[in-house]
């Protein structure tokens, strides 16, 4: 059995499919709306436990499961399509969109560098979370360029998403942000697609601005992060 698994060309990818689909179906079947029931994180956690318990090496699993990363670039390119659909809204609010997302992204990086400096965090770990506000596909690309740990990036991206969903609306109320455009931009810039799901609940304008912010934040972050890393590290 072990020998078979080690030599299998499909074991890892099939395991990924089965476990991910399991959580996805459970979510649909029981109509679980909570973003905390995250099929990706649950599936990955389950597979880690399974591998640790059975003593199967990560390399054996990744031998076939790892092929999915091949799709990272084509998938990121697909993000052009929702952005193109929102282009009219970008033109209407161009200055507000660009300036606020730039401000938010700069604040994000500065906050992380400040805390990292205070607690003397290892640069490799810092580099792994600098891109965590943006959608996973782009975040992984940035971490790849910086030489960070990609799995840490994904967990960071997940936390960013959950923060926006659970605390976003209350924080916006607390600092008296009332404009629908501003609310949408804030949620999309901080919490990518997960924040956008919340923004859509708040309203149509919020949802549209938030989904626009996902890709704009991604592109701006790609430009800003290497500059900061070049200067500060």
């Amino acid at each position: 059995m072990r020998d078979f698994i080690v030599s299998s060309s499909y074991f890892g990818i099939a395991l990924s499919f089965v476990v991910y689909m399991f959580y996805h179906i459970v979510k649909e079947k029981f109509k679980i709306r909570s973003p905390f029931f995250n099929a990706l994180i649950l599936a990955a956690g389950t597979i880690i436990v399974l591998l640790l318990v059975t003593g199967i090496d990560f390399e054996v699993y990744n031998n076939s499961a790892g092929h999915v990363t091949f799709w990272l670039t084509p998938m990121t390119i697909c993000l052009a399509i929702p952005l193109y659909r929102q282009l009219e809204k970008l033109k209407e609010n161009f200055v507000a969109v660009m300036v606020s997302i730039l401000a938010g992204s700069l604040a994000h990086i500065i906050t992380l560098f400040l805390i990292a400096g205070l607690v003397k965090l290892d640069n490799m770990l810092l580099n792994s979370i600098l891109s965590k506000s943006v959608t996973t596909a782009i975040a992984l690309g940035i971490t790849g360029e910086l030489g960070g740990i990609q799995s840490v990036t994904i967990v960071g991206v997940t936390i960013a998403g959950l923060t926006g969903v659970s605390l976003g609306p209350s924080i916006l109320k607390l600092v008296r942000v009332k404009e629908p455009v501003a609310k949408g931009l804030a949620l999309g810039t901080a919490s990518h697609a997960v924040g956008t799901s919340k923004a859509m609940e708040l309203g149509e304008i919020e949802g549209a601005m938030s989904s626009l912010a996902i890709v704009v934040t991604g592109i701006l972050t790609v430009i800003i992060v290497p500059i900061f890393v070049g200067i500060l590290e």
């Binding site: 994180i41 990955a44 597979i47 499961a65 840490v152 994904i154």
Partner: peptide, 10 residues
């Protein structure tokens, strides 16, 4: 789904 394996690499 495509991020399952990269997350397992944790």
């Amino acid at each position: 789904f495509f991020f399952v394996a990269p997350t397992v690499s944790l």
